[in-house]
């Protein structure tokens, strides 16, 4: 087991996260992946937006940037262009990425810029104490959906793939090791990669929806997660209350920063 404490700014801990929150597990998976890839801390930038997940960078001993709500990917895009030598990882939540930051997700994926995005998906706005997000399933309760959520929820992975992401995967906090493996592959992948990490918010989602404490919500993840391989042989009705984990898509495609650098080189040659 790697000593993860070397990656933390322990003087700024404990974290702001509630007891039973899944975000610590997901963050651990991110760090184990970074450790396995063997990245130099000086060569890593962790960028986030606003929300519970987005507070993660402050606890991590890398170049860290906590930006405005939804804009992590846009800040990260400028940073990556300025410093192509950095491994840029965006940590974000479902509200930050799928709602207010949705446009930046679509276009970062379209450009296939070499940024790894890890979405800590707890299906709720936790920081503001429990409003429904674009990832909250229909009928679920939230402070702004007191009669049950009327809206339909996103499949973020399908969205990213359709927009042009070249690595798309979903994992879950309960399955921390496979999640970490997926994040490792995403970091190694050249191009835009998205890993959706199903997390849990017992405080503002679990309690209101009578899903139990953190451990109960993890148990739900354990029983309801289906691997992509297994899901391939299942009928849609069998998958109704389940969620699929695994690597969904990986492709080789021209990466944006490299393509722009080729343009610079071409112009230098006078062509």
């Amino acid at each position: 087991m790697p000593d993860l404490s070397t990656y933390f700014r322990t003087q700024h801990m404990p974290t702001i996260w509630c007891a039973g929150c899944g975000h610590g597990i997901v963050l651990g998976a991110v760090l184990r992946a970074i450790d396995r890839v063997g990245l130099d801390k000086d060569r890593v930038a962790i960028v986030s937006g606003i929300g519970c997940a987005s507070r993660a960078p402050g606890y991590l001993d890398f170049n860290t940037l906590h930006t405005t709500h939804g804009r992590g990917l846009a800040f990260a895009t400028g940073l990556k262009m300025a410093r192509p030598d950095l491994k840029v990882i965006v940590v974000t939540g479902d509200g930050d990425l799928a709602a207010i930051g949705g446009n930046h997700l679509i276009h970062a994926a379209r450009r296939n810029i070499d940024i790894t995005t890890v979405c800590f998906n707890n299906e709720i706005y936790g920081m503001t104490s429990g409003q429904f997000s674009p990832m909250t399933p229909t009928t679920r309760l939230a402070t702004t959906a007191p009669y049950g959520n009327v809206e339909r929820n996103f499949d973020l992975c399908e969205l990213a793939k359709a927009a042009g992401a070249t690595f798309v995967a979903r994992g879950a906090a309960f399955y921390a090791r496979p999640l970490s493996n997926l994040i490792e592959q995403a970091i190694k992948h050249k191009g835009f990669s998205l890993v959706e990490a199903v997390s849990q918010c017992p405080t503002y989602y679990g309690r209101r929806n009578k899903l139990g404490a953190g451990a109960d919500m993890l148990e739900w993840q354990r029983t309801q997660a289906v691997t992509a391989e297994k899901a391939a042989g299942m009928k849609p009705e069998e998958l109704a209350d389940r969620f699929v984990i695994g690597k969904f898509y990986e492709a080789d495609a021209p990466e944006y920063v490299e393509e722009y650098d080729k343009l610079i080189q071409r112009l230098k040659g006078g062509r």
């Binding site: 960028v47 940037l65 930006t67 405005t68 804009r71 846009a74 800040f75 990260a76 895009t77 400028g78 940073l79 990556k80 262009m81 300025a82 410093r83 950095l86 446009n103 930046h104 679509i106 276009h107």
Partner: peptide, 19 residues
Amino acid sequence: MQMEDEIGSMAAVIGASLG
């Protein structure tokens, strides 16, 4: 960079400056 919107443009400028 021609960004996807004005907000993203300002964000990318700040990101590049930090770089």
